Computed example of a mutant assay.
Amino acid sequence: MRITPKKYHEHYHIRSATENDAKTLSEVRLQIDGETEHLDREQGEAYISELGFKQIIKDDTEHMNHLFLVAEVNEKIVGFARCEGSSLKRTAHKVEFGVCVLKKYWGYGIGKNLLKESIRWADAHDMKKMTLSVLETNQTAIKLYEKYGFEVEGILKKDKRLSDGNYYHTILMARFHG
């Protein structure tokens, strides 16, 4: 599925990903994975190549319950978000949301606006439930998700081991529509 591009301030805009973005997305994802422990992967793990991203973008464009958005600053991709739905009838009413932004661009509302556009799309397409997972240490993200109607559904205890050697919980959150 695609959205109409939207400009935020004069600094950046959000649009649907195209297959031409695949190489850059592969590079940006690899960089982001090395900048934060808030995500599931360490840098280089579960690497997605340009070809892999082309297939993801193609699939997300063709499926009505998938969305792949990118945020650009001066025509450079600095972050992205995905909503991935299921083809199974029993779970076709929900999508899973994920987002990441280059650390250099944190604090500009990019993640928030990727979330808002994803929510707008999900509501417009009558998705009854959006889910996400967030590490307990990412309090900024948790507060943002709560502000936009997400609630805690569960906790995966001692789910992630970070570089300090300690184990942390993953918070499962959901937002309901309709």
Rank of each mutant, 00 (worst) to 15 (best):
M1I: 02
T4Y: 07
H9C: 07
H11R: 13
H13C: 01
T18P: 04
N20W: 08
A22G: 02
K23W: 05
S26C: 12
R29A: 14
R29S: 14
L30N: 10
L30H: 14
G34C: 05
E35K: 05
D40I: 12
Q43P: 07
G44R: 02
Y47R: 12
Y47V: 08
Y47A: 11
I48D: 05
L51S: 09
L51C: 03
F53I: 13
K54Y: 12
I56V: 14
I57T: 00
K58G: 09
D59I: 09
D59V: 13
E62V: 07
L67M: 06
F68P: 00
F68G: 00
L69K: 01
V70P: 03
K76V: 14
I77H: 15
I77E: 13
V78P: 05
V78H: 09
F80S: 12
A81Y: 14
R82N: 13
E84V: 15
G85R: 07
G85P: 14
S86T: 13
K89A: 15
R90P: 01
K94R: 04
F97M: 10
L102R: 15
K104Y: 04
G107H: 02
K112W: 04
N113C: 02
N113Q: 00
L115Y: 10
K116R: 11
K116M: 15
S118K: 03
I119V: 11
R120F: 13
W121S: 00
W121Q: 03
A122L: 14
A124I: 03
H125W: 12
D126N: 15
D126A: 15
M127W: 06
T131L: 13
V134I: 12
V134R: 14
E136N: 08
Y145P: 02
E151W: 06
E151C: 11
K158P: 04
R161K: 15
R161S: 10
S163F: 06
D164V: 05
Y167D: 10
L172K: 07
L172W: 07
A174H: 03
A174V: 06
F176Q: 02
G178P: 05
